[in-house]
């Protein structure tokens, strides 16, 4: 049985079955890949019948696509703090935290992206949108013309930290990211990637 996932609240009624199917499917897709996960396996894992799953999702592909939602990052540091380099570092760390809490989601995506599956490839673009809004724009305000380039570099570096984490450590990566040493190093790396003085601003 898949364990409960920390970032999903448990809504009641009709929504909760749908939610349970999605949560279970995410874990199974991450574990067995898209081709290796049948609707039957998802249904059996949940103790449901196949038709009960099909009631919510007409096809396996529709179910997979429902998992590819644009990240919801919630309230961000720059929503309440002035735009400084230091606060932008916090903004990037906040976005990274969303992904760090979801290694299964990352594994599920990466597995299919490595085989060139269309839906997961298209999602690479979708997931860049919030980054463009929440990091690239403020970077542009701070740096002017160099903002886009700095943003792309920083994005690739953050992807590298995440991919390396889920490849090397699997689901244990989430816990590791919560350690003080990791948090300190992460901030120092992000700061390094944003042009400007290395010392903290006064």
């Amino acid at each position: 049985m898949p364990r409960a996932l920390p970032w999903t609240s448990a809504p009641t009624g009709e929504g909760s079955t749908r939610r349970r199917i999605l949560d279970t499917a995410r874990v199974l897709f991450a574990e067995h890949g898209y081709p290796g996960t049948s609707v039957r396996l998802i249904a059996r894992t949940l103790g449901m019948s196949d038709p009960a799953v099909y009631y919510h999702f007409p096809t396996k592909q529709a179910l997979y696509r429902s998992l590819l939602i644009e990240p919801e990052y919630g309230e961000l540091p720059l929503d309440r703090l002035p735009l400084t380099r230091q606060n932008l570092v916090e903004q990037v760390v906040h976005l990274f935290g969303w992904w760090a809490a979801r290694p299964e989601f990352g594994r599920m995506l990466l597995r299919e992206q490595l085989t060139g599956q269309e839906a997961s490839m298209a999602f690479m673009e979708t997931s860049y949108e919030p980054w463009r809004r929440e990091v690239e724009r403020p970077l542009g305000v701070l740096l002017g013309i160099g903002g886009v380039d700095a943003s792309e570099m920083l994005y690739d570096m953050m992807c590298g930290i995440f991919w390396d984490g889920i490849l090397s450590h699997g689901d244990r990566f989430t816990e590791m990211t919560l350690e003080d040493a990791f948090q300190r190093r992460l901030r120092a790396m992000v700061q390094l990637a944003i042009p400007g003085p290395l010392e903290e601003e006064a």
Partner: peptide
């Protein structure tokens, strides 16, 4: 240490992203 980690992360991210795209 920090620079090593940052450079390795960047190389990983940028090469994987280029290859995947």
């Amino acid at each position: 240490e920090i620079k090593t980690e940052a450079i390795i992360a960047l190389l990983t991210g940028t090469s994987m992203k280029t290859q995947l795209s």
